[in-house]
Amino acid sequence: MRKLPLLITTGEPAGIGMDVVLLLAEEGKLQDFDRPIWVTAEAEAMQARADKLLAAGVLSRCPSWQTVAAEGNTKLDTEELIAQIAQQPTTDSAFILLDIACGAPVVAGQIDINNAIMVARQLEIAHQLAINNTVAAIVTGPLQKSALIDAGIKLLDGTMFSGHTEFFMQQSGCDKVVMMLANQSMKVALVTTHLALKDVPAAITSQNVRQTVQIVLDDMRTKFGLAAPRILVCGLNPHAGEGGHLGMEEIEIINPVLQEFIAAGVNISQAMPADTLFTPRHLAECDAVIAMFHDQGLPVLKSHGFGDTVNLTLGLPYIRTSVDHGTALDLAGGVGASSTSLYQALVMADEMANKALALH
């Protein structure tokens, strides 16, 4: 059976999204996957970035790719796009470039909000290709949220653009998704994400905890191939509340929900103190950790492998992984960008797609 492609969105054209794709292409690493690689970017900007990296000595040769127009005057026609790609001659090209025009000339390192529509269009196309099962997974490069907000780009519900996660969640009609970061040391999912610390306790509700646990369990089974995943859960408060002396959330909210899953036969802990949960003895006995808030779980994870960490969105009807770095405008078109995170995001997307295929 021919495997479906992995789709990379390069994101903000002024950032390093195109750079890291070109680095992997030159190194021959895009051929490591038994799948076609599709990439969204503007063709003219991609060539200009390759020329700039060649001049800077970052690339020793220009990788080859095949360009296909992703859209004309109408929205993407998936069948027409597939037909166009099928008509391409067989070559040693590293990837298929889905050409999406920018609104203004791209200058490495310099944000132009006139290109924000093109950035959003990449995500719309990626969603459409994934929801139609045309691609096996989406692997997202970095975007500049402030540029999309300044350009007036909105989510489906009319609120300001707040990120990839919220975009794909709303496009897919999901009520909730879960952010997970993963590397070779551990996998950490979050009950709350980008909230001020003072707002976190109010967001730790029974429904939020229950939905998070269920999504993690479902995706560990369907996307990681684990029939009986082992989950450890952090408490919200120091010492998991110290029996109520340091907070009541564990007693009143978190543990009653976790007990429901335990009673149903799920291999999940009750709320544990985060400072002891994240020790080798406990991590060796679990497949994933659920943390209550962003800076409870992610600093530990990133201290064990920042460069190879991958961001995943659980709960979507398709696979989405991402790099764990930003646009790095100061590195675009020059020396210093690393392709490690993009490669690891591709590896994880490929592994998850293979496991999903095996289950079906």
Results as ranks from 00 to 15, higher is better:
Leu4Arg: 15
Thr9Trp: 03
Gly11Ile: 06
Gly15Glu: 04
Ile16Gly: 05
Leu22Met: 06
Leu30Phe: 00
Gln31Gly: 14
Asp32Glu: 05
Asp32Gly: 05
Asp32Tyr: 01
Asp34Ala: 15
Trp38Glu: 01
Trp38Tyr: 05
Ala41Cys: 04
Glu44Gly: 10
Arg49Pro: 02
Gly57Asp: 08
Leu59Val: 07
Pro63Ser: 14
Thr67Arg: 07
Ala70Gln: 00
Ala70Cys: 05
Ala70Lys: 02
Leu76Gln: 13
Asp77Pro: 08
Glu79Thr: 11
Ile82His: 09
Ala83Lys: 12
Ala83Gln: 11
Phe95Thr: 12
Ile96Phe: 03
Leu98Arg: 13
Cys102Ser: 02
Gln110Arg: 12
Asp112Ala: 12
Gln122Tyr: 03
Leu123Arg: 02
Ala130Lys: 03
Thr134His: 12
Ala137Arg: 13
Ala137Gly: 09
Ile138Pro: 13
Gly141Tyr: 06
Ala151Pro: 10
Leu156Asp: 11
Leu156Ile: 09
Asp157Gly: 05
Thr159Ala: 01
Gly163Met: 12
Gly163His: 11
His164Ala: 03
Thr165Met: 04
Phe168Ser: 08
Gln171Leu: 06
Gly173Phe: 01
Gly173His: 00
Asp175Gln: 14
Met179Asn: 02
Met179Ile: 04
Leu181Asp: 07
Leu181Val: 09
Met186Cys: 13
Met186Asn: 09
Lys187Asn: 08
His194Lys: 11
Ala196Gly: 09
Val200Thr: 06
Pro201Arg: 08
Ala202His: 05
Ala203Gln: 13
Ile204Val: 10
Ser206His: 11
Asn208His: 09
Val209Asn: 04
Leu217Gln: 13
Asp218Glu: 14
Asp219Arg: 05
Asp219Tyr: 07
Thr222Arg: 08
Phe224Leu: 15
Ala228Pro: 00
Ile231Cys: 07
Ile231Val: 15
Leu232Gly: 11
Val233Met: 11
Leu236Pro: 09
Asn237Ser: 10
Pro238Lys: 10
His239Gln: 09
Ala240Arg: 03
Gly243Trp: 09
Gly244Glu: 07
Gly244Ile: 09
His245Asn: 12
Leu246Asp: 04
Gly247Glu: 12
Glu252Pro: 03
Asn255Phe: 06
Pro256Cys: 08
Pro256Ala: 08
Glu260His: 05
Asn267Ser: 13
Ile268Leu: 11
Ala271Leu: 00
Thr276Gly: 05
Phe278Ser: 06
Thr279Glu: 13
Pro280Asn: 10
Pro280Tyr: 04
Ala284Pro: 14
Val289Leu: 12
Met292Asn: 07
Leu298Ser: 06
Leu298Asn: 08
Val300Trp: 12
Val300Phe: 14
Ser303Asp: 02
Phe306Pro: 04
Gly307Ile: 11
Asp308His: 14
Val310Arg: 10
Thr313Tyr: 03
Leu316Phe: 01
Tyr318Ser: 15
Arg320Gly: 01
Val323Asp: 01
Val323Leu: 01
His325Thr: 12
Ala328Asp: 13
Leu329Tyr: 15
Leu329His: 14
Leu331Asn: 08
Gly336Ser: 09
Ala337Lys: 15
Ser338Glu: 12
Ser339Met: 03
Tyr343Ser: 04
Gln344Val: 14
Ala345Phe: 02
Leu346Met: 13
Asp350Phe: 13
Glu351Lys: 15
Met352Ala: 12
Met352Arg: 10
Met352Pro: 01
Asn354Tyr: 09
Ala358Gln: 07
Leu359Trp: 03
